[in-house]
């Protein structure tokens, strides 16, 4: 059987190449393609990438999580506070991830047991989490002076490679293996693809949805830890505007918005595309307001190209 070349399957790689090439030419004089700037892009993108891994699970299961911004800032603040009171790094990080798991359990519990669509649940919890993070320190920023923490999870390098990027690779590998090679990954895809059929095949749909929401929040909380370490401190504004970039990264990466189909590697490339976009628009000298408009336009174009497949 002759297989037609399906460009949509590779749309994320094509848009990656297009965005990269265009900026390399246009911004040649401004050092866009210099190694330093490229590593800078990867550094800036890492948090989006890690949060997008969890989001990819959620979207593949036919769910969505709009509350990740709040999870990011709560986690970052919690870790910063614990470190301020000289709690050891492993304990602080574990507590941060635990906080993510708790947020995810709240989302997942309501989705699975009360059976409210995840969109509405997380729309509600997103303001709850955001409010909670404001209360935690009364809007104050918390600096982190623990050098080990800052180096390991944020601003450090191994050779020329940023530790943020290494964490991204580690998370991507774990995410990819869980997604592709475990029963949980298959359960996620089947719940997203056809919930009834999954149920009739003995898959515990509620449990799968619950754990998917937990994983999504944990990956957001890991992104929060990376933010804190990169910024050497935490503030309630961290992650505030990331939810759109994260969802866009997943969809541009080739994950079906209606669930049932997705890829972790594509998701990472998708978030790098977003990162290149942010960086390129900045180097072009656009004002913040102009950047917002340009980013929105490009994201709509890229998303519409990758979604067209689902019409057949």
């Amino acid at each position: 059987m002759i297989k037609k070349f399906n460009y949509k399957k590779y749309i994320v790689y094509i848009s990656f190449i297009i965005v990269f090439t265009v900026f390399s030419i246009v911004l040649k004089d401004k050092g866009f393609s210099s190694p330093a700037n490229l590593m800078n892009i990867l550094r800036q993108t890492s948090m989006i990438s890690v949060a997008a891994i969890g989001m990819c699970f959620a979207i593949s299961a036919g769910l969505i999580d709009l509350s990740i911004g709040g999870v990011i800032s709560i986690t970052a603040l919690l870790v910063a506070l614990l470190l301020k009171y000289s709690i050891s790094v492993p304990v602080a990080v574990t507590a941060g991830l635990g906080m993510g798991a708790l947020c995810g359990a709240i989302n997942g519990g309501i989705v699975a047991k009360v059976r409210i669509p995840s969109f509405l649940v997380t729309l509600g919890t997103s303001t709850i989490f955001a409010g909670a993070s404001r209360i935690m320190t009364n809007l104050e920023a918390v600096p982190i002076t623990n050098k080990v923490f800052n180096n390991v999870f944020g601003s450090g390098n191994i050779g020329p490679i940023s530790s943020l990027f290494i964490w991204t690779l580690i998370m991507m590998t774990i995410g990819h293996i869980v997604y592709k090679k475990t029963s949980f990954g298959k359960a996620v895809l089947s719940v997203g693809g056809n919930e009834s059929a999954a149920r009739y095949s003995g898959i515990n749909v509620d449990k799968t949805k619950f754990w998917t929401m937990v994983i999504c929040s944990i990956s957001a909380s890991f992104a929060g830890i990376m933010y804190a370490a990169r910024m050497h401190g935490a503030r309630y504004t961290l992650g505030e505007n990331d939810v759109m970039s994260v969802i866009a990264a997943v969809v541009i990466g080739g994950t079906s918005f209606s669930g049932g189909k997705g890829t972790i590697v594509g998701t990472i490339i998708g978030s790098i595309v977003i990162g290149i976009l942010n960086n390129g628009l900045l180097l072009m000298g656009l004002s913040v307001s102009e950047q917002m408009i340009a980013r929105g336009v490009v994201i709509i174009i890229a998303v519409s190209l990758s979604l067209r497949e689902s019409r057949d």
Binding site: K186, L189, G193, N194, A197
Partner: peptide, 18 residues
Amino acid sequence: EGFIKDLNNTDNMALASL
């Protein structure tokens, strides 16, 4: 109720025996 649309035959046949 019978199968998952985007999965291949391998995965659909394994679905109840993960």
